[in-house]
Design a protein around this nucleic acid. Structure first.
Lengths: 260, 260
DNA sequence: AGCGACACTCTGGCATGTCAGATTTGTAAA
DNA sequence: TTTACAAATCTGACATGCCAGAGTGTCGCT
């Protein structure tokens, strides 16, 4: 099996040591966000244990807020709490990943179709928000600001739901995207990027909506985030990506697979 | 404004007094389920306060598990926790209702289409589970067992996701259905039922899947759970339903609107 | 060496207590 | 009666502590 560079195994306490809790927001939400980020960015490996007490000590707080954050992380599917045993990062499951893609694709198809229908009976300014988004995307891609581009991409898709008149749906999508985010992070780690191409696709979606054509909008969206089959193919085609995931999932049980 | 019969305002403690916590399952999940049921069945009215301490006393337990259950209820959108003030049942918002319908319709369209495609290349037994479900539905509808019918209906739709190969999607659907369930409860309270018709629609969906025709499957599904517009129309056409919701939302602030 | 019993440790479930802020209530002045 | 303001009350956020059960290592028996 190919050796793959993986971050050294770090305990939660190590990773959180330099974090300071702001008294402005609730501790629970801050801890939730912090640990979620660690999991999504694969700083915490699948299967790795997260101890309430350890986190509490590292953050100089008590177990209670940590525990409540972990409960919410469990609801989000990022950790598994096993009574009297421990709390563990869930493995990256490709079936969940596929389901998340399924959800996103279908919801977004529905959104762009609705948006296109509404656009049909609205003024020319209907797509202004999309246009502004695309313009800014081009700016940041020009200076390789991928973090910002990631935010803009998210905003663009959120705007689609807004145009469709179902803004809240976005949060549902976000909620199930945990596994997608983890895989996406792996992809960017492996330098799989395609910024300009994405912008072109965004523009195609915008145009179809502006033209008031639900069918074209669906086609454009599918070309963008792809059908389910496409998505899995993409994964398989990336040499070693699935293997990489396997290794990550197994790493905690077999630490000798890890390299510094 | 029309007077509408509404359950007398009951505190959580009253409603939970006869409940006994089983030591087999965790207290949190039992409390979560119990309060969720009370909210969905509109025993607890929108806006009504749910005090941690009150629930804890009624169930002869401590605040901790109650609190954790309430946190999960907040994630589910059923309550709103206001720091240093109280925890309140969220109002029934029709925009959320619409969004939940949107989510369900689009996901289920995707599911039946996929199921139909898979059926196309599978054996004749592909739809057996659906057939068995429909058969049992006919049995229970014959003896007016609406509670059981409700379960079977749910199982039928869950089976659709299973056939599509994305079983986990069902849980996402369930997660966002809180408001739908509340409205549905209102509907059944107002005697809006149509059992035999539903079974006929189930059969149509099954047939389209068995025939391996995605387009027909989508059509049949739309006829069943309806497009978004249809759903809202249904609401508006029910004389007084929207009003009823308004009154429920306002009831707690204006107790004089309530009748025994 | 192989294996089972037992003690010890660790974990999360839960009980209880403290506190600051939000809300309500009592009350007295206008 | 109305209003203003302060005391009393109530609430959830968080801290701390205890407990039973799961896991693990050790030691003695075979």
């Amino acid at each position: 099996m190919a050796k793959i560079a993986v971050d050294r195994l770090r305990t939660v306490s190590e990773l959180l040591l330099d974090m300071r809790l702001s008294p402005e927001k609730s501790k629970v939400s801050q801890i939730f966000d912090a640990i979620r980020a660690l999991i999504v960015e694969i700083k915490l490996l699948p299967g790795q244990q997260i101890s309430e007490l350890e986190v509490a000590d590292a953050l100089e707080t008590s177990k209670t807020p940590v525990r409540e954050a972990l409960i919410r992380l469990e609801d989000a599917g990022l950790v598994r709490i096993v009574p009297k045993s421990g709390t563990y990062v869930t493995p990256i499951r490709i079936d969940r990943y596929v389901e998340a893609c399924f959800i996103r694709v279908n919801l977004e198809i529905g959104a762009v179709r609705r948006a296109a229908r509404k656009s049909h009976t609205s003024d020319a300014d209907f797509c202004r928000e999309l246009d502004e988004g695309i313009a800014e995307q081009e700016e940041v891609i020009a200076r390789d600001d991928y973090r910002r581009f990631f935010e803009l991409d998210e905003a663009f898709h959120r705007a689609l739901y807004q145009l469709a008149g179902v803004p809240g749906v976005w949060w549902t999508v976000k909620g199930v995207q945990a596994d997608v985010d983890r895989v996406r992070h792996l992809k960017t780690l492996r330098n799989i990027r395609k910024g300009p191409q994405i912008i072109e696709q965004h523009r195609a979606i915008r145009d179809a909506i502006a033209a008031g054509s639900p069918a074209d909008a669906e086609t454009a969206l599918l070309a963008h985030i792809g059908g389910l089959g496409t998505e899995i193919e993409t994964l398989s085609r990336q040499p070693g990506l699935l293997e990489h995931i396997e290794i990550l999932n197994a790493a905690v049980k077999r630490p000798h697979l890890l390299r510094a």
